[in-house]
């Protein structure tokens, strides 16, 4: 049985972290959750990210979800915003790809280029896996 005591324990453990967290050091990971994203599998992606953040005990990371990011055929879409850096948009995510992004980009600071959406002159140019379908 899950008990409220457990919850109180958890609170004690997370309180310090919440208090220490300062916005300018915080990385945001945002998952798009409109109909298209949900149908394409955004929920397991979001939960995999949460799970990885918990497993790695990452303190300065906020995971959030948002509505439609706009390009349905590229969903699930994940945005990573590290403090002081440009936003990086990852497309066609899976739970596995998302875990890799958390490890390599959020923790390691190295963008996982293979999954990134590139836009030039308002056109999405990168991704040949997109052309194929």
């Amino acid at each position: 049985m899950k008990t409220i005591q457990e919850l109180e324990e958890i609170r004690k453990n997370t309180l310090d972290r919440v208090n220490q967290r300062r916005d300018r050091n915080t990385t945001r990971i945002v998952v798009g959750m409109a109909t298209c994203g949900i149908a394409a599998g955004a929920r397991p992606v979001l939960l995999a990210i949460m799970d990885e953040v918990e497993k790695l005990n990452l303190k300065d990371v906020i995971v959030a979800q948002t509505g439609c990011i706009g390009v349905c055929r590229l969903e699930p879409i994940v945005e990573v915003i590290r403090p002081g850096e440009d936003k990086v948009t990852y497309i066609k995510m899976t739970p596995e790809k998302a875990r890799r992004v958390v490890n390599e980009h959020v923790v390691g600071g190295k963008v996982v280029e293979e999954y990134v959406m590139h836009i030039v002159d308002g056109k999405i140019i990168n991704d040949y896996t997109v052309e194929k379908d």
């Binding site: 899950k2 919850l7 109180e8 958890i10 609170r11 453990n13 309180l15 949460m50 918990e54 995971v63």
Partner: peptide, 17 residues
């Protein structure tokens, strides 16, 4: 839940619970 842990319930451990 917020009565026990406060308003910020978006921590991974709390969400797991």
């Amino acid at each position: 839940i917020k009565k026990t842990v406060g308003d910020d319930i978006k921590e991974p451990e709390i969400l797991r619970w």
